[in-house]
Every structure is written in structure tokens, then in C-alpha cells.
Design a protein around this nucleic acid. Structure first.
Length: 277
DNA sequence: AGGATAGCCTGCGGGC
DNA sequence: TGCCCGCAGGCTATCC
């Protein structure tokens, strides 16, 4: 469930907890969560974490410079149930069966990657340039950065419906099922509307409202439905502001009619047939 | 080749 | 009470 607002909250929590810390030991309890070519040296052992970057729903733990183009880095994708949690040196921490990687820091704190469903994973790169070229270049612009012209050109090159296009990370990176439904309701636009039908003014409004929605969700700590917590283990509060997600059969906040539930683009979708055209 | 669909994986909740 | 099945969903692979 971690979408952009949740991942951004995790990123911000990691800034204070692990940036500047040196990794003294890495415990790889479940090797297959590290995808692609993995070298133990690439799991950051002996290196100092200097940055935590994000694009869309993906994070990067970056270490100090090593050759051209930036530091060695790990790309972490949380998938549906993945989490990155920091554990205080003074408190006991017993990794359970779903804790796949533990980074032990020189100051005694630990960073744990846990992911019961294992839709997430970790990718290793020799430099941030490699990460960008080999992986992040496949993503569209980040949802907080995208310009209306960029989204509009993404819309015009397909015949798919809005729901499918907004979920497509190669068009815009960071939205998932929750925030797409919330955004479409916020804009009063139907999820089954072909994306290519929107004119520039409508796309502009979509981008404006997308940024505002995501900003508010970030400031609320993201949405916690079941699993999500930030890097410090605290839940978010934006689930209390959801207008449509998870509210099928309940009253529309705008017209009072019943919210509909349908499978659109293979995803459960909640929307108001009356208000969203 | 764009687009739809299956499969990955576990936990939980509804229904019998 | 307990079991089984359906569902949740981001992303990749596969097929049409």
C-alpha cells in the first residue's frame, strides 16, 4: 500500500535516522529479496549513508562518492507490505520471519527491511547514475514534479481510461489505487473516461489537485489501512480524510448518493457515478 | 505493439 | 468454532 505519500514519509524518517550513519554489518536473512546481480559489497557494508532519494514509490539509500556519477546505492521498493524501520540501540529488536534484511549501524541502531508478501525488493547499483539509467529512467516524472504538458503528452499517446493511465508508473510515478481514486473524485472526473479526451485545462487542474492532495497526505503522515507505518513505526492519519477509497456503498460527500464499486483496469475502483463525469 | 490479463505472495475476514 | 475461499494490490511476464 505504500504510495508516494507513505514512501515520502519513510524517506523523511530515514533522513534523521540513518543519514550520516556507517553500516558496520549487514544481515541478509532472505537473499532472494535482493534482485539482479548482487554483490555483498553492494549492500552498503562499511559505507556511510549520505542521502535517501525517492522517485515515485521507490527509495534509494546512497553512500558516499565512489567514482564518477555518485555513490553506490540500493534501490528499495516497498511493494504492498514492505517496510523500512529504524530500531533504537537501547531497545531490544528481534527480527521475525518476514524481516529479510537488517543493516547494523556503527552507533548500534538497526535498519530493518520487512515484507511479508514480498512484492517489494532491493536492487543494487554501482552508482546513482546506474540506478537512474537502468531503473528510474523507466518511470515517468514524479507525481509531485510532473508538469501539465508532460502529463498531457502521456495522456495523448494512449486510448486507455484514466484509471489505468494514472496507475501506469511510466506515465506518472507515485500514484497507486488509493490516491488515483481520491484524485479522480477530487476532480469530479470519471475513472472510465479515456485519458486522451482531456483538454489542456482539465489536465492542468488534475496536476494542481494531484499536488495538493499528495501534499496534504504527506503532511498527515500518509494513509494507514493495515500495515503501513513510517520509519519510526508510527501510523499515518490520512485514511480519515479519504472521500471514496474503501467507502463503496456509503454516501458521496458531494451529492449524498451511494458510491459505486467496480473493477476498472483490473483494480477495485470506488467512485460516484453522479458526480464524476 | 499496445493493451489486457495471469501470477507472484501472505493475511485477514466473511460465510457456512 | 473452524475451515475454506476470495480478496487486497504493484509490478513483471506473457499472450493476444
Amino acid at each position: 500500500m505504500p504510495e508516494l505519500p507513505e514512501v515520502e514519509n519513510v524517506r523523511q524518517g530515514l533522513l534523521s535516522a540513518v543519514v550520516g550513519q556507517t553500516v558496520s554489518r549487514v544481515s541478509l536473512r532472505r537473499p532472494d529479496v535482493v534482485r539482479g546481480k548482487k554483490r555483498p559489497a553492494d549492500l552498503l557494508k562499511g559505507q556511510m549513508i549520505t542521502r535517501v532519494d525517492r522517485k515515485g514509490k521507490q527509495l534509494a539509500l546512497v553512500t558516499e562518492m565512489s567514482g564518477a556519477g555518485g555513490g553506490v546505492c540500493l534501490c528499495v521498493h516497498l511493494g504492498m507490505t514492505g517496510s523500512l524501520r529504524c530500531h533504537d540501540p537501547r531497545k531490544p529488536f528481534v527480527p521475525d520471519g518476514h524481516t529479510h534484511v537488517v543493516w547494523h549501524m556503527a552507533n548500534g541502531s538497526r535498519l530493518a527491511f520487512r515484507d511479508p508478501r514480498r512484492f517489494g525488493g532491493i536492487w543494487t547499483f554501482a552508482s546513482t547514475d546506474d540506478l537512474i539509467e537502468q531503473r528510474w529512467s523507466r518511470l515517468g516524472p514524479d507525481a509531485l514534479m510532473i508538469k501539465p504538458t508532460q502529463l498531457h503528452s502521456g495522456f495523448r499517446k494512449t486510448r486507455r481510461v484514466l484509471k489505468a493511465v494514472l496507475l501506469d508508473q511510466s506515465i506518472v510515478a507515485g500514484l497507486g489505487n488509493i490516491y488515483v481514486d481520491e484524485l479522480l473524485f477530487n476532480c469530479r472526473v470519471s475513472p472510465v473516461r479515456p485519458a486522451c479526451e482531456l483538454d489542456h485545462k482539465q489536465v492542468q487542474q488534475l496536476v494542481t489537485r494531484m499536488r495538493r492532495l499528495l501534499d496534504r497526505a504527506i503532511r498527515s503522515g500518509g494513509s494507514t489501512l493495515r500495515d503501513y507505518t513510517n520509519a519510526q513505526g508510527q501510523p499515518g492519519g490520512y485514511q480519515f480524510s479519504h472521500k471514496v477509497y474503501g467507502r463503496s456503498g456509503q454516501a458521496c460527500a458531494q451529492c449524498g448518493g451511494l458510491l459505486s464499486n467496480a473493477t476498472i483496469a483490473g483494480r477495485t475502483t470506488v467512485y460516484c457515478e453522479q458526480c464524476q463525469e
